[in-house]
Amino acid sequence: MAEITMTVNGRTVSGTCEDRTLLVQFIRENQGLTGTHVGCDTSQCGACVVHVDGKAVKSCTMLAAQANGSEVTTIEGLASGGELHPVQAAFREHHGLQCGFCTPGMIMTAVDMIRRHDGKLDEHTVRSELDGNICRCTGYHNIVKAILAAAEEMGSGSKVAAE
């Protein structure tokens, strides 16, 4: 058994789990944070993307034990004090979701991509950066639109990312 201590959304949490427990199981089952979804469970679809030490990773393809001692941010950690993160707000504004299943992973991937590109994104870059996130209903168009809008807003400095 593994004794795990990590920071999740700014809070230090501890728990015991099997060494084979996936990070996504730890987040959902030990921590009760069910915003992170399991889609394909084969490292393809990106519904489970969270940030570990500031980087987007697929939490279905990492052991909780590997993340021991790390800082983890999930979709629940983005909004601050009831105000949506600019990427969340842009997905709502631009209708970047339909069923919503892929949305947590899409948003975590988007926040990571905007940060890595310093807010400077074009449509081609957004589409290739979404390689690891699958959506079965929107056709991606409005997801791309939402990410570009959020990047623009965050880049203009009118709102600071809540992370």
Partner: peptide, 9 residues
């Protein structure tokens, strides 16, 4: 290689 999340790990 792969996608951004795969490249991070």
């Amino acid at each position: 290689i792969g996608d951004p999340a795969v490249r991070h790990m």
